[in-house]
Design a protein around this nucleic acid. Structure first.
Ligand SMILES: [Zn+2]
Ligand SMILES: [Zn+2]
Ligand SMILES: [Zn+2]
Ligand SMILES: [Zn+2]
Lengths: 153, 153
DNA sequence: CTTCTAAATGATATGTTATATCATTGCACA
DNA sequence: TGTGCAATGATATAACATATCATTTAGAAG
């Protein structure tokens, strides 16, 4: 992701946060930028290492955990449960509201693609939930895949 | 799950394993029984504790990890990525083949319900994967929910 | 029924990840 | 310019996961 795209995401993130009364502090913004530039899933400890290398500071692990939690709560990053890592949302600068996503994860090269679920599909899933007497709060659809490149070789 | 149901699952598991050339050893069977009786997600360390309490033996953690891995590979238990726990498959004794499942997880009481995905739904998900140029290997659909009881109170 | 072999399990150590607790900083608001 | 609460830092430790090598066990071969 180019510098100007990253900046667009950060701007959009600031706007969205202030609209919802969330505080995108300097540290949180720094971590978000880092995630946007990484374009790959990062664990909290990997975030710490990257941050400390770049900023020549010393962020403690619990701060990384807290900040990633915040960003995930704000839908600016997503947690990939199958890897216990986080990845920047691919739709921060998009105008449409963020609905549920499918995450296509290449088991070989670890590339991740975030695809919005069509309303029809989401409704289909929702239907099964309701008929079991449950109420859905947050779906997590992670698909272990092979990406185009990796399935060729 | 009653004693006779557990036994039916174990019998079915033995049959399925021998058909696929897998070895459902004594330890593996003991752990599977334990999971069937628990009817709740258990972490490897919880399995160790339960086993050691019941059998008054001392299973090391790595054995629990290995055995749970084996059982998951054999589709006799499933790994819940969002909790890093395992739960016995609800369809061991069923005659139909095991396709992909949705896991409805109550965030409050941690009840889990495993619901088979209808082919139509699976195909819908698959479609999005293909159109992104990926090949699906193993879907993980975990839905953070409130169960019937918990959503009332 | 032995003996052999590979797979499974145990023992042990250690690396990694996650969290708990309290102190300190810094920003919003009066 | 204080005052209070949210955010972050410092530190310790708990919980989780894995690596390595030894030992046992189960199945195959003779
Ligand atoms: Zn997103
Ligand atoms: Zn790939
Ligand atoms: Zn199942
Ligand atoms: Zn519940």
């Amino acid at each position: 992701m180019g510098v100007q795209e990253v900046q667009a995401c950060l701007d959009s993130a600031h706007q969205r946060c202030s609209e919802s009364g969330l505080r995108l502090t300097q540290k949180r913004e720094q971590i978000l930028r880092l995630m946007l530039e990484a374009e790959a899933p990062l664990s909290p400890y990997e975030v710490v290492d990257l941050y400390n290398a770049q900023a020549e500071q010393n962020m403690p692990p619990n701060s990384a955990y807290r900040i990633l939690d915040f960003l995930a709560e704000a839908n600016l990053v997503h947690k990939l449960n199958s890897a216990n890592k986080y990845i920047a949302c691919s739709h921060i600068a998009c105008s449409h509201p963020h609905s549920a996503s499918q995450f296509l994860i290449c088991s070989q090269c670890k590339t991740v693609k975030e695809v919005m679920m069509e309303p029809k599909l989401l409704k289909e899933i929702q239907k099964n939930v309701s008929s079991a007497g449950f109420k859905m709060r947050h779906p997590s659809v992670e698909l272990e895949c092979l990406c185009g490149e990796c399935s060729e070789s």
